[in-house]
C-alpha cells in the first residue's frame, strides 16, 4: 500500500490509521457513483446525452444509472421541480441509502430559474440538501461531468471514520429562508441519528 497517500492535513488532526481508512472509503465511494437520474424536464434530455455515446459518463465511473432509488447514491435533479412533484422527489431522496449526494442540474432546480411562478419550487434546496449546483438552461453535458469531478473532489475531503466516532451528521437548515444551506458531510452509515432532516430544536428548526 505504498502508493496510498493521505490527503493533506489529515494526519496532523487524527491518527494515521484513521486517515488511511477514510482515504480508502472515499476512494471507493467517489469512483463508483451510481446516479439516480431524476429527469424532470429539459435537463433530463441532456442527462441522457451525457450518459449517451458522445460524452460517455462511464469514463468517470458514474454510468450505472439506476431508476430504483435503493441502488443509487448520487441524485441528479435534472429539471424543473414543481410543488406537486416535490413530495415524490423528497420520498425518492429518503429512500436512497446513505451516503448520498445531490447535484442540482440546471437553473430550475438550483433556484427556480426562469419559472418564478405559483407551481415551481424556487430551488430544490427548499426540500433537500444539495451538494453541487450546475447553472445553465440546460447545462451542457460537459458542465455536468465537471460537476461530477468536483463532487469526487468533495468526497475526497470527507472524513467518514471520524464522523462515526463523533456522531451526528445533519445538513444545515435555515428556517428563515426555508432552505438547506449546507449538505451533510457523510459518515459511515449508522441507524437513526444520521438521517438528514432539518433540525427542529427551538430557535433553529422550522416554525
Amino acid at each position: 500500500m505504498g502508493s496510498l497517500k493521505p490527503a493533506d492535513g489529515h494526519a496532523s488532526e487524527t491518527g494515521f490509521f484513521v486517515t488511511q481508512v477514510d482515504w480508502v472509503v472515499n476512494w471507493g465511494r467517489k469512483n463508483s457513483l451510481w446516479p439516480m437520474p431524476l429527469g424532470l424536464s429539459c435537463c433530463g434530455i441532456e442527462l441522457m446525452a451525457m450518459i449517451g455515446p458522445k460524452f460517455d459518463i462511464a469514463r468517470f465511473g458514474a454510468e450505472a444509472a439506476r431508476f430504483s432509488p435503493r441502488q443509487c447514491d448520487l441524485m441528479v435533479v435534472a429539471g424543473t421541480l414543481t410543488w406537486k412533484m416535490a413530495e415524490a422527489a423528497r420520498l425518492i431522496y429518503d429512500q436512497m441509502p446513505d451516503p448520498k449526494w445531490v447535484i442540482a442540474m440546471g437553473v430550475c432546480s438550483s433556484s427556480g430559474g426562469m419559472y418564478d411562478s405559483y407551481s415551481v419550487v424556487q430551488g430544490v434546496d427548499m426540500i433537500l440538501p444539495v451538494d453541487l449546483y450546475v447553472p445553465g438552461c440546460p447545462p451542457r453535458p460537459d458542465a455536468v461531468i465537471d460537476a461530477i469531478l468536483k463532487l469526487q473532489k468533495k468526497i475526497e475531503r470527507e472524513k467518514p471514520f471520524q464522523l462515526l466516532l463523533d456522531g451526528d451528521v445533519v445538513g444545515e437548515y435555515d428556517s428563515g429562508t426555508k432552505r438547506f444551506l449546507r449538505a451533510p458531510n457523510h459518515g459511515v452509515p449508522t441507524t437513526g441519528s444520521h438521517e438528514v432532516l432539518p433540525p427542529t430544536k427551538p430557535g433553529r428548526g422550522r416554525s
Binding site: 424536464s41 424543473t80 414543481t82 406537486k84 419559472y115 405559483y118 415551481v120
Partner: peptide, 10 residues
C-alpha cells in the same frame, strides 16, 4: 401536472 410550470400565466 407534475411538470406544470404555469406557462400560460407566465
Amino acid at each position: 401536472g407534475y411538470l406544470h410550470r404555469g406557462k400560460e400565466k407566465t
